[in-house]
């Protein structure tokens, strides 16, 4: 099972994502530079990692969303390729129009860096099917622009379709409806602000992120 990680200038969770993927697939993911124009055909899962792509210039994720590799990613995701956007990766996916809504400056203006407790809002997705829906999970957050916004109509649609996957139990950033992560309607693209790749080893302080990788990799 071949996975890949996209690398932008100032990505900084790309190697953490690579370690998380390799520990589940047994082989190193392709590291794809943002100037590349196409994702290799053998890739079944693409991670858009956290960081500060392009220094967050203009808006977080805005420049990265227009990079050549994202154009190809968009096309392949339309055809069903599994995509996981974490933190800055979530911002990139919303900016690219692959997920609805936008991530704004945290409501309290502060960079938030701590463990966040999440509720499984939907444990039936390809990314969460190995979780017990009743269990809350602890996943670290580290962001300044994680305040999820979508208009009322979009929120209603997300709620109605079960596209909200994770909710904060203690909303750290002002996100509407406590949203921490969403999937697209087809269910193959997940974006989330918390960092599951930072919760896969006991030395991380917790391993609640493992089941996300297990779920999605097991579904492929």
């Amino acid at each position: 099972m071949q996975a890949a990680v996209i690398v932008f200038p100032a990505s900084n969770c790309d190697r953490d994502a690579a370690v998380a993927l390799e520990s589940h697939t047994g082989k190193p993911p392709h590291m794809i530079w943002h100037k590349d124009t196409s994702i290799p055909d053998d890739v079944r899962l693409v991670v858009v990692p956290g960081g500060f792509s392009y220094g967050d210039y203009l808006r977080s994720g805005a420049i990265a969303a227009n990079s050549p590799i994202i154009q190809d990613l968009k096309q392949k995701a339309d055809n069903g390729l599994a995509v996981l956007g974490i933190c800055n990766g979530f911002q990139v996916l919303t900016e690219a129009g692959m997920l609805p809504g936008a991530l704004m400056r945290n409501a309290n203006q502060k960079f938030v860096c701590r463990i966040s407790r999440l509720r499984l809002a939907n444990a039936q997705t390809r990314f969460t099917k190995d979780y017990d829906a009743k269990h809350e999970i602890d996943i670290p957050v580290a962001h300044h622009d994680g305040n999820y916004f979508a208009d009322d109509e979009t929120l209603r649609r997300l709620e109605g379709n079960g596209q909200i996957v994770f909710r904060y139990t203690d909303n750290p950033n002002g996100s509407r409806n406590d949203i921490a992560g969403i999937v697209n309607q087809a269910g193959n693209v997940l974006g989330m602000m918390p960092h599951p790749e930072r919760a896969i080893d006991p030395l991380h302080g917790g391993t609640d992120g493992k089941k996300l990788f297990q779920s999605i990799l097991g579904s492929l």
């Binding site: 203009l58 900016e95 809504g101």
Partner: peptide, 9 residues
């Protein structure tokens, strides 16, 4: 529309 503004917000 393409880059300078995010018309969602």
């Amino acid at each position: 529309e393409k880059l300078l503004a995010n018309t969602v917000i």
